[in-house]
Design a protein around this nucleic acid. Structure first.
Length: 835
RNA sequence: GCCGGUGUGGUGGAAUGGUAGACACAGGAGACUUAAAAUCUCCCGGUAGUAAUACCGUACCGGUUCGAGUCCGGUCACCGGCACCA
């Protein structure tokens, strides 16, 4: 008989709604455990089948923690500001707040449908004024501590969204969200000084329990490099400074390059004879997007600055200077020393412009390509006092020299740029500042927060790149909080990363109207013990929130340097590819698929999308199989960290397993004792499941539970045996287990739900069998197995080996030269032909 | 180009240096049934063989080891991140 999942799941969800077994209690004497999943963006499409993967995993971890006696905080909320909602609102003429409200209601229904143990009383919504009041408050603190500043600079501009993007939001030269073209545009923007925290963001990773690839990716993104700033004299009245990581190659410098955007260039222009040519080049460079600049990198372009001479400080020879867009204004000093012998880009440039190439590190052929040694043991040549040194010795020697001679200093640089923090859109937190002609930028007094997002007629951004709020003249024109004179409000809003940078703190104390979080709550719950989220947020949300947290630590709001003690990451859920060539039956069909769909046809699985018709809706899955089955399947699907492909057939297998569990109730003998037959496998399973959940190896934990159920069918079982299965299965399939717990009478007997019971303990001694099966090998080849008492010595094992017929065959005419015994595992006989 | 990761049956995937393929899906056979579904039992890497069995087998080449899917060196393929960062 199959169980009626629809009725059972509804019954227990209603029960939990009323009895609130997932309530977290601040200050409770039990040890605390704070488990966190990335709160969803409430899109109009509803929950994607990918969401339940991380949600279920951490739900299982926190359910087990509760059973282990922890006071668990497992909260949920909504990251509700953002462009898709705004775009949807524009298209359908509905206010974004209403769209958001409806989407949140739908998400909430779906999350409750899946039976997650969230403490719903702590639910937050970043677009709620009571919430964003504190987002604005944090921004004001950043402003007051000179961590926020307004700067006019070239920024990434999405031509489709008509909005500024942070560096982190530009992917392959296009907009991360819409795939639209990104161009460089000069705009005045609010910036946050994340670069001030670059070193700490690297250093503090060491003490965190993050999966390694997250640490590596963050470190690469921050991109620390050590080198030196070196100053060159010029004939223009001003010196120029370059940054280099290869100070050792200074003798090989044969020219200089300046970025087209460099301010010095503007200053020098009137004195440059070929000014018109240079200006034309600058204009051309400005027109190119970053993407185009990168695409065209095979072909170096540039213009010589006629009349400009730069003196190499070690050779004292004059060097020509060029302007070229291969030098970036945003990194180092915006000026580079050209060392064509040992940098491939410089080599290409020098070759194109006929500049001399000097070999200063021996080992390559600089007439053919730049020689960039793989290790630093290559030897210096043509380099004065460095000659004969290895690169390893020459770098510090030259650094020391430039410092002593007064034309250089050691320098550390980062690829990380300051965070572009303003967006010209409506659906975001208003920036709580006003601009006064007399006082400049003035913060709104904190007691006037939140600065509520006003109602507007139209949400569309303007073509000139102003926020929709700019049209609200009533709202824009205000008075200066400082002098009372006329002032204008900032009309840009914050990026959607703002509200998510600190939401985990609000969960600790969600109703506090005096502080963003009370000291008491923060000290009790902080830091988050386990945070799981997507790899795509590694250099966005995860980095941003670490930065904000460090700032809040510095100003005394939080007591830990880091927000999250542990970070894990889940793989994506893909759909089956309907056009996969593997599905074709004939060669002709295969060819047709490849002809029609190209490389798409070669992948067995692809991202789910409407156009491919392979989207799986959690509502449908729950309707057909139940929430417990969906939970179980999404955990059984494979290695948690790896990409996995949805398979509806495999879902059926999980449903079958739950039915088999359910049907055990009829077979179980009426005894609360653990049966002798099943004792060993029960203890082994507890050990396995306990360890696997802690390591997020849910697939093997479930496999162990399946094996246990198979054993119950083979051996028979008692209700006591079944209760052990129920307790272990409870985090995975909470609805069905509670129903079974009640039907088997345990709920009445214990006066508790299964989820409130103690997690079963195992006895190590009982996980060890009296007898073990050992492999018998001859010269490393398996010949058979023997069954011997556990921990048998060599003599006993050898006695048992005599019974293995294949060993006799293999030993024919052979003599044993060595035996290798691995206790309880195998015995390996090394033999040689007997003389 | 640089940095990370992955590669195991028809499929998803298991294996602290120690019996490769646990647990499932799909497939096959059988039991029950008037029948189907459901359920239960058994088989299921390849080649040869009726079988016992033998040989081969964890992307490829080599090495270390009594023993390698696992460790080391190299190659190839795919996935993710970064990319004119001096």
């Amino acid at each position: 008989m199959n169980y009626d999942f629809a009725a059972i799941e509804k019954k227990w969800q209603d029960n939990w709604e009323k009895t609130k077994p997932y309530r977290a209690v601040t200050g409770d004497p039990r040890p605390k455990f704070y488990g966190l999943i990335e709160f969803p963006y409430p899109s109009a499409q509803g929950l994607h089948v990918g969401h339940p993967r991380p949600f279920t995993a951490i739900d299982i971890v926190t359910r087990k923690k509760r059973m282990e006696g922890y006071n668990v905080l497992f909260p949920i909320g909504y990251d509700a500001f953002g462009l898709p909602t705004e775009n949807y609102a524009i298209k359908n003429h509905i206010h974004p707040a209403i769209v958001t409200r409806d989407n949140i209601a739908n998400f909430t229904r779906q999350l409750k449908m899946l039976g997650y143990g969230f403490d719903w009383d702590r639910c937050v919504n970043t677009s709620d004024p009571e919430y964003y009041k504190w987002t604005q408050w944090i921004f004001l603190q950043l402003f007051k501590h000179d961590m926020a500043y307004k700067a006019t600079m070239a920024v990434n501009w999405c031509t489709s969204c008509k909005v500024v993007l942070a560096n982190e939001e530009v992917v392959n030269g296009v907009c991360e969200r819409c795939g639209g073209e990104v161009v460089q545009k000069e705009k005045s923007q609010w910036m946050l000084r994340i670069t001030k925290y670059a070193q700490r963001l690297i250093d503090d990773l060491d003490d965190l329990d993050y999966i390694e690839r997250v640490k590596v990716q963050q470190k690469n993104w921050i991109g620390r490099s050590t080198g030196a700033d070196i100053t060159f004299k010029t004939n223009m009245g001003e010196d120029v400074t370059v940054y280099t990581t290869r100070a050792d190659t200074l003798f090989g410098t044969t020219y200089m390059v300046i970025s087209p955007e460099h301010p010095l260039l503007k200053k020098w222009l009137p004195q440059i004879p070929n000014r018109a040519e240079v200006e034309a080049y600058q204009a051309e460079a400005a027109r190119k997007s970053d993407f185009e600049r990168g695409e065209l990198n095979k072909d170096k372009t540039g213009v010589r600055l006629e009349g400009v001479e730069v003196i190499n400080p070690v050779t004292h020879k004059p060097l020509p200077m060029f302007v070229s867009d291969y030098v970036l204004m945003g990194y180092g000093t915006g000026i580079v020393m050209g060392v064509p012998g040992h940098d491939q880009r410089d080599w290409e440039f020098a070759t194109k412009f006929g500049l001399p190439i000097i070999e200063v590190v021996a080992g390559g052929d600089v007439t053919k390509e730049a020689f960039v040694a793989k290790d630093d043991s290559a030897v210096m040549v043509n380099s004065g006092f460095l000659n004969g040194m290895t690169v390893r010795e020459a770098i510090p020697a030259m650094k020391k020299y430039v410092v002593e001679q007064g034309f250089g200093k050691e320098k550390v640089n980062y690829k990380l740029r300051d965070w572009v923090f303003s967006r010209q859109r409506y659906w975001g937190e208003p920036i709580p500042l006003v601009n006064c002609q007399k006082c400049g930028w003035v913060p709104i007094p904190e007691d006037q927060l939140p600065l509520v997002l006003p109602e507007v007629e139209a949400y569309e951004p303007t073509d000139d790149g102003e926020s929709p709020l700019a049209r609200m003249t009533d709202w824009v024109n205000t008075t200066c909080p400082c002098c009372g004179g006329p002032a204008k409000r900032e009309t840009d809003t914050m990026p959607n990363w703002a509200g998510s940078s600190w939401y985990f703190l609000r969960y600790m104390d969600p109703d506090n109207d005096k502080e963003l979080v009370s000291r008491e709550a923060e000290e009790y719950w902080g830091p988050v013990d386990w945070y799981n989220g997507g790899m795509e947020h590694t250099t966005l949300h995860l980095l941003y929130s670490r930065f904000w947290h460090k700032f809040l630590y510095d100003i005394g709001v939080v007591h830990t340097k880091e927000p999250y003690a542990k970070r894990t990451s889940h793989g994506m859920i893909l759909g089956e590819n309907p056009y996969y060539v593997g599905n074709a039956k004939t060669e002709a069909e295969k060819e047709e698929l490849v002809r029609l769909h190209g490389s798409l046809a070669l992948r067995p699985s692809v991202k789910m999308s409407k156009s491919l018709g392979n989207v799986v809706n959690p509502d449908d899955v729950v309707k057909e199989f139940g929430a417990d089955t969906l939970r179980l399947y999404i955990m059984f699907i494979g290695d948690f960290e790896k990409t996995a492909t949805w398979s509806t057939n495999a879902v059926r297998g999980c449903k079958k397993f739950l039915d088999r569990c359910w049907n055990l109730m009829e077979l179980a003998a009426d005894s609360d004792e653990i049966s002798a037959k099943n004792e060993s496998i029960i203890h082994k399973t507890i050990k396995k499941v306990t360890g696997d959940i802690d390591e997020l190896k849910m697939n093997t934990a479930i496999a162990a539970l399946m094996a246990l159920v198979n054993a119950f069918y083979a051996n028979g079982l008692t209700k006591g045996d079944l209760s052990m299965l129920m307790l272990m299965l409870s985090p995975f399939a909470p609805h069905m287990v509670e129903e079974m717990w009640e039907l088997t009478g345990f709920a009445a007997k214990k006066g508790k739900m299964a989820m409130q019971m103690a997690w079963p303990a195992y006895d190590e001694a009982k996980t060890i069998d009296a007898n073990v099966e050992m492999a018998v090998q001859v010269n490393g080849k398996l010949k058979g197995t023997i069954n011997v008492p556990v921990d048998s010595d060599e003599q006993t094992v050898m006695e048992a080996v005599k019974a293995v017929e294949k060993v006799h065959k293999a030993m024919d005419g052979m003599a044993i030269v060595k035996t290798i015994l691995v206790k309880n595992k195998l015995i390996n006989l090394i033999v040689k032909p007997a003389k």
